[in-house]
Design a protein around this nucleic acid. Structure first.
Length: 311
DNA sequence: CTTCTTGTTACTGA
DNA sequence: ATCAGTAACAAGAA
């Protein structure tokens, strides 16, 4: 699978801006994307159920009309946004896209009663969570459902056409795991920026897909204080670039970080929380020296750092 | 009770 | 106009 729009991929501009399986990224969303690829593609949608309209960014009717009787033929990701290409039964694209943003606590889980019932605890967990905060359900003709659940409701769903999608995509900075994201590219982004390096890493318009956990992990790995101005020295930029690639790649391999809410498309937790070196470790000994991990607020977010390992 | 939380965006002021 | 910093959104956990 290469293109987001058709299997032939004849929408060159958009294809270039949306990653496929060759550009893994923002670990949790990428893990969900990969999980859903195996579950929901080319399955006719039988029903669209809306339990709570608050999380819809398009009119309820638009979801029903655009999705019923259609199917998804690909799932892309840009930063932390998932992009489902909607097609007629048989695979002809409709020019409409189903977008999902999970916010802080959003979940997109594929649920199949028949398969799930054999999974014991996993089934019970999914069922209880779904009962509490499930706002949107797509039912597939064959069997199975795609659930959108979100306790805090910072996440949302949206239907857009190609122009709407392009407008959304234009706002994202580069994908950090893309080969074209070189240290020179990073240097250009950081050049003359006065904001803190942490704020810059969190800004999706500068670099797409990094959140609070990975910002802290990357800065610790690179030995850079989160409060430093973004315009770093060249050697620091190269180090930061190396750390971004290393941390994000490993987190994708470990299927993301489940610090509290995150689960993948099958309702399972990630593993990268077992490899965190600085995030959530305030008051504990630093892994790299004899010091204690400290916490402060940077860019409005809780930030862990080690003052002797990070300069 | 207080403070915290994996994200984003509107608003404020320089 | 542009940039940087903060509050707010909502719900639950500690």
């Amino acid at each position: 699978m290469c293109g987001l729009f058709t299997k032939g991929g004849n929408h060159a501009i958009l294809d270039r801006t949306i990653n496929s399986k060759y550009m893994p990224e923002l670990p949790e969303i990428e893990t969900i994307r990969r999980g859903l690829l195996e579950k929901v593609l080319e399955k006719p949608i039988l029903s669209v159920r809306v339990n709570n309209e608050e999380i819809l960014r398009s009119p309820r009717r638009r979801f029903t009309q655009t999705l019923k009787g259609k199917e998804f033929i690909s799932i892309g990701r840009r930063g932390k946004m998932l992009i489902f290409t909607i097609a007629e039964e048989g695979g002809e694209p409709t020019g409409r896209f189903f977008l999902a943003r999970l916010g802080m606590t959003g979940r997109l889980v594929y649920f199949d009663e028949e398969n799930g019932s054999r999974e014991g605890n996993s089934y019970a967990r999914k069922k209880s969570y779904a009962h509490a905060h499930c706002h949107f359900i797509l039912g597939f003709e064959s069997s199975g459902s795609l659930l959108f659940c979100d306790s805090r409701k910072f996440g949302y769903l949206e239907i857009v056409d190609e122009a709407g999608l392009e407008a959304k995509l234009r706002r994202f900075g580069p994908e950090p795991l893309d080969k074209s994201f070189t240290w020179q590219a990073l240097e250009k982004i950081l050049d003359k920026r006065k904001v803190s390096i942490k704020a810059l890493l969190l800004n999706q318009e500068c670099i797409a897909g990094i959140g609070n956990i990975y910002a802290d992990e990357i800065l610790f790995d690179a030995g850079i204080m989160p409060t430093r101005r973004a315009s770093l020295e060249r050697e620091e930029i190269r180090s930061l670039h190396r750390s971004m690639k290393r941390i994000l790649k490993k987190a994708v391999e470990k299927r993301g970080t489940s610090f509290s809410d995150y689960v993948d498309a099958a309702g399972e937790k990630g593993n990268f929380q077992n490899f965190l070196k600085i995030y959530g470790r305030q008051g504990k000994p630093c892994i790299g020296c004899s010091g204690i991990v400290e916490r402060m607020v940077v860019a409005g977010r809780g930030t862990n750092f080690c003052r002797s390992c990070q300069k």
